[in-house]
Amino acid sequence: METALARSALYNFLAAAFGEPPTAALVDSARAIIPALADAPLDDLQREYTRLLVGPGAGYIPPYASIYLHPAEAGKALLWGAEAARVESTYRAAGLEIAPGQPRLPDHLALELQFMQHLCACQADAALRGDMQEAAEWQARQEAFLQGHLLVWLSRFAAQVEQSARLPFYPTLINFTLDFIQSEIENLKAVAAL
C-alpha cells in the first residue's frame, strides 16, 4: 500500500512536469529526484517547455500518443487517432472521464500519467480496506496500460524530444520516466507472479 501511494505521488509529479509550464518548485523537486539534472534559468526552461511540448512551430514534439501509434504517413499523423479513442474507453472502464472545460484530448502524456496516478491511488485505497482482490485488479490495469500503451509510444516520443531539445532538462526527465516505467513493469510482473 505504501508503495502504491508513493508511486501515485511520482506519477502525479510527472503529470505536472509534462502538463504545465515549469515552476521554481517543480524544478526544485525535479532536481531532488534526479540529482544529475543540469541547471538552467527558469525562463529558459519555460521557453523550452513551450517549444517542445506545447508548440506549435519548429521543435515541437506533440506529446500525444496517437501521433506515434497512428499508422499515418510520417509527419502527417493527426491528433485524436484511433489510439486516443481506445485510451478514453480505458479511462471510462476505470470509472473516469475528462472534466468539463479541460483539454479534451484523451492521450496527452500528462493525462495518461495522471490516469496512472489514479490507478495507483485506487490500488492503495483497496489495500487499505483490505480488499486485496480489488487491489490486484487495479494493479492489473496499471500493467496493461503501461505495457500495452504508454511504454510503446513513450520511447518513440523520447527519441524525438532528445533530438529536438536545446536544454537537457526534458530529455533527462523523459528518460527518467522511461526508466521508471520499465521498472514499474518489472516490479508489477514480479508482484503479480507472487
Binding site: L10, L26, A99, Q114, F115, F180, S183
Partner: peptide, 25 residues
C-alpha cells in the same frame, strides 16, 4: 528502480501535483 526507491523518490516530489483533469464517470 526498486519499490523502496519509489517511496524515497515520492518523498522528494515536494507535493508537486497537477490539478485533476478527471472526474468520476
Amino acid at each position: 528502480f526498486s519499490r523502496r526507491d519509489f517511496i524515497k523518490l515520492a518523498g522528494l516530489t515536494g507535493g508537486i501535483a497537477l490539478g485533476s483533469r478527471f472526474i468520476p464517470s
